[in-house]
Amino acid sequence: MDRSITRRGILTGACGGITSALAGCTSVVPGMGTGDGDGATETATRQFDQSETFIGMLYATSGLDDDSFNDMANRGVKLARVRHGIEYKNAVPETVDQIQALQTEYAKSTNPQFDLTVCIGFLQQEPLTKTAKEYSDQKFMLVDAVVDRDNVANYVFKEHEGSFQVGVLAGSLTSQGFSAGAGQTRVDRKTVGFVGGIESDLIKKFEAGFMAGAKYADEDVEVLREYVGSFSDVEAGRQAAQSMYDEGADIVYHAAGGTGVGVFQAAQENGRFAIGVDSDQSETDPRYANVILASMVKRVDTAVFNAIDTIEKGEFDGGSVQSLGLDRNGLEVAYGNVVGPEIPELAKLQVDDTRFKIVNGEIDVPTTPEEV
């Protein structure tokens, strides 16, 4: 349905207006209206027009402005607002322990009543298993994990495939002399690194794909690896990457959300390179564009938009699992806007070739580091 946007943000800054759990325990950010951060406010007594579609956005704990995973999800709901005129509410849990309370508050809300609650990140899986059962009439979307219930539409990605591609890029460039932007490789070492956020089966898919891709490009490449236990600890990311650069790494790939900013900082400080994740981080955080070779873009924005689109069309696919890989354009390699043009064409062709081979089954990318 095609609706015009006729009202401004439901809440900005303060958390009141839906229920008490959304009113102070979270890092709540603007939603519903003409633009995030526009400063408009609604009161708790406002009666909303339920002929419009309302979406509850519940992000991962790394928060918005992570230039990565959450921001891609936010881009998807913004596109839905432009295309369909939906209204939405943003909330960010400060801790994992707050997630179920926030899911529950969206499910219980009657002013407005949310047509869909979008849950971003695998850490929402366990609490949603309980919430979705208790509130079986509420529709949910879950990104990066699966809850097997008829009121949950699940969207997962084949992160290992895209990570394999950037691994091929890293393995190719560490095996040769390469200089661009503020970085350069060492001709006497063939070493790259991987920094993960919270160690989990999901993040291990990034690790495994990257390792396999680097070895595919050059079997002599050494891959250093470390998990920092957080998706929002910039200093931990910087220290982990620093140790890798000290050990000879030319390029470090991160799958660590906001923690990845520290990886970019260390790359600049050492005159080396980094690879971003989830969004094109040379664009979302241009401060580090001169050391970002590429980013493994995960189209969370597409997943969020598609889920909202099913609500608009009355075709909610509860109980389904949508798996987005290279074959469905759920992933892509975005070369950095500063360093990317300087990358040798031969390396880019090698990356392109692996896409074709993965989609056609000629390359079977491992999903765990133990398989590499």
Rank of each mutant, 00 (worst) to 15 (best):
V28S: 13
V28P: 06
V29N: 07
G31K: 04
M32E: 11
M32F: 12
G33I: 01
G35K: 12
G35S: 10
D36P: 09
D36F: 08
G37Y: 04
E42V: 10
A44P: 10
T45F: 06
R46N: 11
R46Q: 12
Q47H: 13
Q47C: 13
Q47I: 14
Q50F: 10
S51F: 12
S51P: 08
E52V: 14
T53F: 05
F54E: 01
F54D: 00
G56K: 00
M57E: 00
M57L: 08
Y59C: 14
Y59T: 15
Y59L: 12
G63T: 06
D65T: 13
D67N: 11
D67M: 09
D67K: 10
F69T: 03
F69L: 03
D71M: 05
A73F: 02
N74Q: 14
N74D: 07
R75H: 08
V77D: 00
K78T: 03
A80L: 00
R81S: 10
V82C: 08
G85P: 01
E87T: 05
Y88C: 01
Y88S: 03
N90R: 06
A91C: 09
V92N: 03
V92P: 00
P93A: 11
E94G: 15
T95E: 14
V96G: 07
V96Y: 14
D97A: 15
D97C: 11
Q98G: 05
Q100M: 09
Q103C: 07
T104C: 14
T104E: 15
E105G: 14
E105T: 07
Y106N: 02
Y106T: 02
A107R: 00
S109Y: 02
T110P: 04
N111P: 03
N111C: 05
P112L: 04
Q113K: 15
Q113W: 14
Q113S: 10
D115Y: 09
T117P: 00
C119S: 11
I120G: 01
G121M: 03
G121I: 02
G121P: 02
F122K: 06
F122D: 11
L123D: 13
Q124Y: 04
Q124W: 02
P127G: 05
